[in-house]
Design a protein around this nucleic acid. Structure first.
Lengths: 232, 232
DNA sequence: TTAAAACTGTGACCTATGTCATAATTTTGG
DNA sequence: CCAAAATTATGACATAGGTCACAGTTTTAA
């Protein structure tokens, strides 16, 4: 299914809800109930979906598109903490333990989201405990990504971190082809730098090295072809 | 209550179960049920509680003591990911999504733990959904700590990270006194270094600087008195 | 209590990577 | 499609902090 086949204005969000892992255990009728609770929103590239410190009253689920969750340090640096895409949700912490947003969320491209009001979400959670288990699962996988990030930032040098992030993007966003794995990068060089905690220039230099070695090929700024994934 | 007042051989673990936040919503009778499922273990300083990659079949809850959860990189570096102490639990991921341990866990001092078999734990979870919510809460606070760690490692220099970790320890383990906040450090200098991702020598140097400035006072290797917490 | 083991402090040195400046390239939006 | 805006590449340079070596100190456990 491509991104355009779900026009939620027409299909009444059915497909969006079906797409979302946390609702995957529900049957058709239950999905219908959920669908009626959903409010849909669209964000353009660069638009803020959540501002750090603001109050949230909805769970937000990504229907299509990509977003970055990040913090700004007071010296003006940006640290990207998560990249969320189709099926991912966020804001759950703010609903479950009633606190304000811990980070900014900004659309990296045109992004459609489904939102569910706090009270509706809590009701669902009470009625369908499997949703709670799905959420625990998702939190665990988020923990896993952060545990890996901490290990990487604490013990690896810039070159290893760049290789690692390319592997991550290849796994998540890559498409196999006979030339190699074609990866549409979700982040600019600067974004990658802010994700792995190095300087923008360092990302450039390390990626150029990889290109010189024939391990990757850069196509413009937003696409990379990975020719030799084992070398990463 | 000090650590010695709970001799669980005698009191049949009642106090251990009561101490544990995830069981805090249960009433006396329910606690009794839980208590009967608990198997108690003792680990000496330096003993391994979990080995990375091993299979786990119990939830482990810390009754007293402290442990570190860490990974070893293949170049022989150690990255500490969590420090767990009284009331904290671990191994849950391995029970809920059936995978092997993601990190080593080692006792930092004499540590008593309560363990609950996977099946018993799952039964409890099904019967008392509030336990699931407590677990979500705990996972969220773990996410929070890791999000902060990633921000810190990605954007802060060694000095700021040392200051930060001292603040964290002061909050978690510090006791107020008229001289300042007395902190029993859970980690050696090397441990701190492996926690915040810098070299052991750097931790020494930055802490000495803080001592010269009168902000902290080091008492032996395992204790620090924080004289001016606002300066950190 | 004491010897051995573990840990810490410190100087010297080095290098990976951050910073700055500028030119070149790519992307975007009207 | 084009001009403006944004992003990237790259060289020069500076430096924070890693590594090494070793002496001194603290902690441990018998």
């Amino acid at each position: 299914m491509n991104n355009h086949s779900c026009n939620c204005e027409r299909c009444q969000h059915k497909i969006c809800a079906k797409r979302v892992p946390i609702f995957s255990t529900l049957n058709a009728e239950e999905i219908n109930r959920v669908v009626n609770l959903i409010i849909r929103k669209r964000y353009s590239r660069g638009e803020m979906i959540i501002l750090e410190g603001s109050h949230l009253d909805s769970l937000i689920i990504i229907n299509s598109g990509k977003v970055k969750a990040f913090r700004n340090t007071f010296e003006g640096k940006e640290q990207i903490i998560y990249i969320f895409s189709q099926g991912d949700f966020f804001g759950e912490k703010n609903l479950l333990i009633n606190q304000n947003a811990q980070y900014n969320v900004e659309a990296l491209e045109v992004t459609h989201v489904c939102t569910i009001k706090k009270d509706d979400f809590k009701k669902l959670l009470r009625e369908y405990p499997e949703i709670g288990l799905k959420i625990i699962e998702e939190l665990c996988s988020r923990l896993e990504r952060l545990e890996n990030a901490v290990e990487s930032m604490g013990t690896k040098n810039a070159e290893e971190r760049v290789n690692e992030v390319l592997l991550e993007f290849a796994r998540k966003y890559g498409k196999e082809s006979q030339n190699g794995i074609i990866v549409e990068l979700p982040l600019s060089r600067e974004g990658i730098a802010n994700y792995i905690g190095v300087a923008r220039e360092t990302v450039s230099r390390k990626m150029n090295l990889l290109q010189e070695e024939g391990i990757i090929e850069m196509v413009g700024n937003k696409k990379v072809i990975i020719r030799n994934i084992d070398a990463l």
